[in-house]
């Protein structure tokens, strides 16, 4: 269902973006020293932290001889939303998010390289303003890269929605990277986690019913978002590495 009133007659969204624009993404790798890899990522006002431990020896109950066991935990800080949350993790929504995260990340990790071991990925949402899942996937990718876990490709997630033809606008138009306001307007939200370099889709989720006619354009817009995000993540990793090497050089000298 396309939501109404999301596009102005001048073709701008409520926050001033054009339909095909992402929110501002800022990120940093290596924000913690304890974990093997960590990252902080902002997508507009949605802010998340990710930490990666491992690969390390798997606990007996989870042990698998086929590949590494990916263990994800998604939690939202009690202060992350406007009204204070009571349970940061363990509720149904968080569990579902954890499972979805695991699905997307397992698709990217070369699991077959580490049998009998496990990787723990913790993500914490510090501030939620829509698209928390996407931000979590993107942050986790950065953290995994920093931890040196071999990946098939960056896994990037992006959401897209559909704006109904409003007053003065040309027609229904897909919106990229949906914020909280746009989510709350009641339109459909399509979330995609993809490996843009290989073109694989790791996870696809949709919040409402959407007519078939619109599905392809919404999906392709979300995929475009994933590709845009990959460029940003790649640059961040390269910058971090450049910076990191110099630091290490200084230390060894």
């Amino acid at each position: 269902m396309p939501a109404t009133d999301l596009l102005s007659s001048q073709g701008l969204r409520l926050d001033g973006r054009r339909p095909n624009e992402l929110r501002r993404i800022r990120c940093r790798l290596g924000v913690f020293t304890q974990p093997d890899g960590s990252a902080y990522l902002e997508q507009g006002n949605t802010k998340v932290l990710a930490a990666v431990y491992g690969p390390h020896q798997a606990s007996k109950s989870k042990l698998s001889t086929e590949g590494v066991v990916v263990n994800c935990q998604y939690s939202m800080a009690t202060f992350s939303t406007g009204e204070r949350k009571n349970r940061p993790r363990g509720d149904r929504k968080s569990q579902e998010m954890s499972m979805h995260l695991r699905q997307a990340l397992t698709a990217a990790i070369k699991t077959e390289l580490y049998p009998r071991s496990q990787i723990d990925i913790y993500v914490e949402v510090l501030q939620a303003d829509g698209g928390a899942y996407c931000a979590c996937v993107n942050a986790a990718t950065l953290a995994l890269t920093e931890a040196g876990v071999p990946l098939r490709a960056y896994v990037c997630a992006s959401s897209a929605s559909m704006a109904a033809a409003g007053a003065g606008s040309a027609g229904p138009e897909p919106l990229l990277d949906v914020g909280h306001v746009e989510e709350a307007a009641g339109g459909v939200v399509l979330t995609v986690a993809a490996l843009p370099t290989t073109g694989h889709i790791a996870l696809l989720e949709m919040s409402h019913r959407l007519h078939m006619d619109y599905f392809d354009i919404v999906l392709s817009r979300a995929m475009q978002g994933c590709r845009d995000i990959e460029v940003i993540l790649d640059r961040a990793v390269r910058d971090h590495l450049a910076e990191g090497w110099t630091k290490q050089d200084v230390m060894t000298i």
Partner: peptide, 22 residues
């Protein structure tokens, strides 16, 4: 990009809403 601004709305209790404004 950037520039955020603050609005307060009442929904039973007072909420602080932060929205992006590009």
């Amino acid at each position: 990009t950037t520039k955020t601004f603050l609005t307060k709305t009442k929904r039973g209790n007072i909420l602080k809403i932060v929205r992006e404004h590009y």
